[in-house]
Amino acid sequence: MEIKTPWSRVREVWRRSSRGPVRAAWLFTAAAALWRALRTVTGDDAYERYVAHHRLHHGGKGVPMSRAEYFRAEQRRRWDGIRRCC
């Protein structure tokens, strides 16, 4: 369940790459990790995570919502309470 923090992922790749000659690859991996982290934190990949969750927990049973359906359902749910502060 627990997703690794972006930082720990970058550190891991750094450790591994230091053994080989391909440090340049590290930059690319770091950028990719950053991009993934950004997508997760902003909720950009929420649908992908939902589909993965659906497959894992309801495997085979029922069809996951489409991207548009999911987005609408999420928005409805989120705004059904206190969302903002002073």
Partner: peptide
């Protein structure tokens, strides 16, 4: 944009 044109693409929309 985020509802109809590109659903759920938060980064693009933002």
């Amino acid at each position: 944009y985020m509802r109809s044109f590109r659903p759920g693409r938060v980064i693009e929309g933002t």
